[in-house]
């Protein structure tokens, strides 16, 4: 079982849940399972070609999946997958 950390802007799609626990072997599999449980989340993370959107980064623990095996990064039990989108917020300038 791993935990996916859902950022605030996507929690409307998870019923307000900040964390989703699920079983997955890889990051790609985790996103697929997340999409099955909460439709719409994965499309905010992956583009039509299945690649991670350029304004989103995924981290397993403190490691960027780009420094690991990307979407094929293997997950271990109790791993934490964090979705970190670029956000704005503060003031118009």
């Amino acid at each position: 079982m791993i935990t996916v950390r859902v950022p605030g802007p996507l929690r409307a799609l998870t019923g307000g849940a900040a964390e989703v626990s699920l079983d997955a072997v890889t990051v790609r599999g985790a996103l697929a399972e997340l999409e099955r449980k909460h439709p719409g989340v994965a499309t905010r993370v992956l583009d039509a070609s299945g690649a991670v959107h350029p304004f989103v980064r995924l981290f397993v623990g403190a490691d960027d999946i780009g420094d690991l095996a990307g979407l094929e990064t293997v997950l271990a039990d109790r791993d934490e997958l964090a979705i970190v989108p670029a956000i704005a917020g503060g003031a118009h300038a």
Partner: peptide, 22 residues
């Protein structure tokens, strides 16, 4: 290097923010 491009609008003006958070 972190984010390659701006995201679709995820801003206070549209998404809101709890006052003390800022």
């Amino acid at each position: 290097c972190l984010f390659e491009a701006p995201a679709p609008a995820l801003q206070c003006a549209t998404a809101g923010v709890l006052g003390p958070v800022v």
